[in-house]
Design a protein around this nucleic acid. Structure first.
Lengths: 226, 226
DNA sequence: CGATCACTTGATCGGTTTCAAGGTCGGTGG
DNA sequence: CCACCGACCTTGAAACCGATCAAGTGATCG
């Protein structure tokens, strides 16, 4: 799950448009379709074209940690070895482009710039994971929720004219991402609404009413969404 | 902080022994010497030859998160952009080899295999960060401490003849790594000793007495230390 | 031998979890 | 068209775990 977008540059082909992994790799999936499961051979990267994807790990005792959400422009499947190290799902109708890992690695031999690009992506992935660690070590529920909402506003840049932003994942997904329970997520969102920091027009959306205070509540100057 | 070791291969030069960053880059540092600070230009990677290094981030409110510990064979400084994104210290007398980032990237253009190696290292880094996230989302103090001790046994392979393993970092460092307080770390270690799962012969060491139960307490089959 | 530092242990407090209802919305079938 | 149902979410009350505050122990070093 990378926040960095692969942008075509003017002087050569867009990175992902080589013949080996051209647009015929595009797939459309309904909500809650699996991309891959933990233990599957790690053969592909996936570029999310639109929709939303979650990556998660399920523990023997049933607990679940969502490791990341991926939106349009993000890439999933990086940072695994030969086999995927966790599960990956869509959480809404999603279009994505499958990219053969092996052909990409082969291509790297001819085009060192591609290697640098991939390293950059890797660095972003590391940053995201570090941000998540920091978010999980942050103590209070308010800080976690505020940080999460902040990162959502940064990543889904487009807000509707009324300021509404989409929150495509359910409360359980937010809870399992932030290391909280559903109830605490709900209570904390309600609290932020009571504080006039956000509005909750419906289940799957939110509006930032006081960005400055939201940032204060998120506390740390840096992180999530980089 | 990478757990992957750079091993010389038989058919060509060891990756790090090119002229540009040969053994003259080796430095010896006393305990608690800074390697770099957040915001410094990210000019070097560092390969830890022996000793131990910690990478951490300090927040405006004084809270600190230790992002990783690096031991002999690990590499620090990867996964930052142009500027380091957190601080890095030694926690014991440590020898390390400084590697110029720019010359390494230049070298990558001539030697694609080097690029692959670096990608592999990046993937490991991502894995480590993900493992940390998972560790921090684990709920109980016992699970966190058990996982931490387990990863220490996996990474510092050599145990003394009596089974003693080194625990070079102080309680405060363990606490800030696991998202706990010093007191809870101490109490939990005491508890594990009472349960006959470990021994604590001295401050800076531990012995695993019942590896099976330690693994059970750590719960998740996977992760930390990979 | 006293000081200091790191760690341990104890008691209380508070925030999150847990357990338990109650509410809202969309869909389905009568 | 409306009543019902189920999924998802919200809200409430009590329990619990780790944080906090506070003291005490033990080693090391001058």
């Amino acid at each position: 799950m990378l926040h960095s977008t692969i942008e075509p540059s003017a002087d050569h082909h867009p990175i992902w448009s080589d013949d080996a992994f051209s647009s015929n790799g595009v797939r459309s999936l309904a909500a809650y379709s699996p991309l891959f499961r933990e233990g599957d051979p790690a053969t592909h990267f996936y570029e999310v074209l639109d929709g939303c994807v979650r990556a998660f790990k399920i523990f023997p005792d049933g607990r679940r940690q969502i490791v990341s959400f991926a939106f349009a422009g993000d890439i999933v499947g990086f940072g695994h070895g030969d086999h995927y190290r966790f599960d990956c799902d869509t959480i809404a109708a999603t279009r994505l482009r499958a990219i053969h890992k092996s052909s990409l690695l082969r291509a790297m031999h001819d085009r060192p710039d591609l290697g640098e690009k991939l390293l950059e992506i890797a660095a972003d992935e590391v940053t995201n994971m570090r941000d998540l660690s920091i978010l999980l070590c942050r103590k209070t529920a308010v800080e976690r929720i505020a940080s999460f909402l902040l990162s959502m506003t940064k990543r889904n840049e487009a807000a509707a004219s009324d300021g509404r932003r989409s929150l495509p994942m359910c409360r359980a997904d937010i809870a399992d991402f932030l290391g909280l329970t559903i109830e605490t997520v709900s209570r904390t969102l309600t609290k932020l609404r009571a504080l006039r920091v956000i509005d909750l027009p419906d289940r799957a959306g939110f509006v930032v009413r006081d960005m400055h205070r939201l940032q204060l509540l998120a506390q740390c100057d840096d992180n999530t969404g980089h």
